[in-house]
Write a protein that binds this DNA or RNA. Structure first.
Lengths: 203, 203
DNA sequence: CGACTGATCTATCTGTCAGATATATACTCC
DNA sequence: GGAGTATATATCTGACAGATAGATCAGTCG
């Protein structure tokens, strides 16, 4: 299947919660699904244009609060019945997996003994990031059931978050184990270098 | 940071094992690192062109086995010392994380009670894929130490594979748990529909 | 030998996307 | 009233995925 074309549907999906501006759409999507889905800024407005072009959303132009002729122009998008059907059809389609592309792992694989010191810093950073991510997702999972969030199915949302939780847990565990391995390798490397230096001293 | 520009370095990294054709480069990369890194076909030749343009690789044109003037032209690329330095510099740079983009999770989040039946099929498919992936990575981790693979650092390679292993384990566990939850929801849904039908029968 | 088949190999094209950037208005706190 | 921040619309560049094209080579079967 051809690449993507998911952005318009993600936007459409967010419109189910009610009419929104492009900016708000992105903000809401990021707040609700940012842990497993991210939209690029550059795709929002082309995406919204496509929605109106296909008749899946209606664009309402409003004047800013000032009310005067120089008030800011705001665009509010609203899903049409046709758009609702298109969304349902897309939701029924099997999701596409993205190709694996992890630059950290690639660099680990391509590296060698001489590059052994840098990775531990990256792994430490990843450990911090994943720990934070884990905290975030657990907080969301706890808060969500109590909140009055407008959503369609809390249980599906929690499933998605649980996936993130498990992935992050696995990442954290890997980071910890890998860090200790890397430290052992660094020590061995340091000993090796010292030994070489003794055999052929610089001075 | 700007998008990628990792393809040329991935190719350069593979050239450390010796001169290769573009086709072989991609094959080797996929065999060794395909579980955590994938290269697009469309990037190979532009990438190789960039390597020669920058003086990081030399391109040797060879004739096919036929030897005649009509034999197939083969291009073999070889890393230059300048290329080796460029690779080292790139390897020392911190890796960039890709933005999360999981279409399955997005669809789960955007779906509702009426769309509840489709996801279980997707999750079942994911379970099969991840189980297979897990088998693959474990097999590689077992075979690698015995093999005579040309590589720079077996331990780094194994680290990368261990990451994949942990991620896949987490995915499998999530699939199993999610499948049972979805089945419960489907049953509840079926009961709800039957109840509705009883209250307002079609006939 | 010649036709067929599948693997090897080089290469291009299209559309999607990430990330940066530009620009301007509205609100808020001091 | 000024500074700083949030809201908002929008464009541009280059990287990238996936599909496709087209050619050559090796093996097989009749």
């Amino acid at each position: 299947m051809r690449p993507g074309r998911t952005t318009p549907f993600a936007l459409l999906g967010m419109l189910r919660l009610g009419p929104q501006s492009g900016y708000a759409l992105r903000r809401e999507l990021s707040a609700a699904a940012g842990l497993f889905w991210s939209e690029s800024y550059g795709q929002i407005y082309p995406g919204l244009r496509e929605l109106t072009r296909r008749g899946w959303a209606k664009r309402r132009v409003e004047r800013g609060a000032g009310g005067g002729p120089r008030g800011r122009v705001r665009h509010r998008y609203e899903m049409t019945p046709k758009g609702a059907r298109a969304l349902q059809a897309w939701l029924a389609l099997p999701p596409r997996r993205s190709a694996p592309r992890d630059e950290l792992l690639l660099k680990l694989y391509l590296g060698d003994r001489d590059t052994v010191d840098a990775p531990s810093g990256w792994v430490r950073r990843l450990l911090l990031e994943e720990t934070d991510r884990l905290r975030q997702v657990r907080r969301m999972m706890e808060i969500l059931p109590r909140g009055t969030h407008a959503h369609r199915s809390l249980r599906h949302w929690l499933m998605a978050l649980e996936f993130v939780e498990r992935q992050s847990e696995a990442s954290v565990a890997w980071c910890q184990r890998t860090l200790s391995t890397l430290e052992l390798m660094q020590e061995a490397n340091a000993r090796r270098r010292t030994a070489l230096q003794r055999r052929s001293p610089m001075e």
